[in-house]
Simulated scan of single mutants.
Amino acid sequence: MGRILLENIKLFGFHGCLPEEKYIGSHYTINIEVELDFCKASVDDDLSKTINYVDLYYIVKEEMNINSKLIEHLAQRIIKRIKKYKKPLIKYTKVKICKENPPLQGNVDRVCVILDD
């Protein structure tokens, strides 16, 4: 077994329940972790026997362009897309999404959700 990690993907999106979040938007940081058996890929040097991390990045980017009220919902959509992408290879998927500078009445750098499947 092995893991592919995409760390600190920085994207902009329009997610949230407050009206201003749908117009102003916010910066997000996303981390993806995918566990799979890439023993054959490591021996054969064959991309078709693993997951292309460029494709993972584009899945995240595309889902970020679809507005959600909750980042929990966004995380679930990303996991579903990743699992569908290479279903038999993937054993475990974890997504962490952080909204930078959330609209709270206090000094908070970010708020994050973590979802795994």
Results as ranks from 00 to 15, higher is better:
residue 1 M to S: 04
residue 2 G to E: 08
residue 2 G to L: 06
residue 2 G to P: 00
residue 2 G to N: 10
residue 3 R to F: 07
residue 4 I to D: 05
residue 9 I to V: 11
residue 9 I to C: 04
residue 10 K to L: 05
residue 12 F to T: 14
residue 12 F to W: 14
residue 12 F to Q: 13
residue 13 G to V: 03
residue 13 G to W: 02
residue 14 F to A: 08
residue 18 L to N: 09
residue 20 E to L: 09
residue 20 E to S: 10
residue 21 E to L: 05
residue 23 Y to V: 15
residue 23 Y to C: 14
residue 27 H to S: 12
residue 29 T to S: 15
residue 31 N to G: 11
residue 31 N to M: 13
residue 33 E to H: 13
residue 34 V to D: 02
residue 35 E to N: 14
residue 37 D to M: 08
residue 38 F to W: 14
residue 38 F to Y: 15
residue 39 C to H: 15
residue 39 C to P: 04
residue 40 K to T: 10
residue 41 A to K: 10
residue 43 V to S: 12
residue 43 V to K: 14
residue 44 D to V: 10
residue 45 D to T: 06
residue 45 D to Q: 08
residue 47 L to A: 09
residue 47 L to N: 05
residue 48 S to C: 02
residue 49 K to I: 00
residue 50 T to Q: 05
residue 54 V to R: 13
residue 57 Y to L: 12
residue 57 Y to H: 13
residue 58 Y to I: 11
residue 59 I to F: 06
residue 60 V to L: 07
residue 61 K to C: 00
residue 62 E to C: 03
residue 62 E to Y: 04
residue 63 E to W: 03
residue 64 M to I: 09
residue 66 I to C: 12
residue 66 I to R: 15
residue 67 N to D: 01
residue 67 N to F: 00
residue 69 K to Y: 00
residue 70 L to V: 00
residue 73 H to P: 01
residue 73 H to T: 09
residue 73 H to S: 08
residue 74 L to D: 03
residue 75 A to K: 04
residue 76 Q to R: 09
residue 76 Q to P: 01
residue 78 I to M: 06
residue 79 I to K: 04
residue 79 I to R: 02
residue 80 K to W: 11
residue 82 I to D: 02
residue 82 I to R: 06
residue 82 I to W: 05
residue 85 Y to S: 08
residue 89 L to V: 03
residue 91 K to T: 03
residue 92 Y to R: 04
residue 92 Y to C: 01
residue 93 T to S: 05
residue 93 T to K: 01
residue 95 V to F: 04
residue 96 K to L: 02
residue 97 I to M: 01
residue 97 I to F: 01
residue 98 C to S: 12
residue 99 K to H: 08
residue 103 P to Y: 03
residue 104 L to C: 04
residue 104 L to Y: 06
residue 104 L to V: 13
residue 105 Q to F: 10
residue 106 G to C: 10
residue 110 R to N: 11
residue 110 R to L: 11
residue 111 V to T: 12
residue 112 C to W: 07
residue 112 C to I: 07
residue 113 V to K: 04
residue 116 D to S: 15
residue 117 D to R: 14
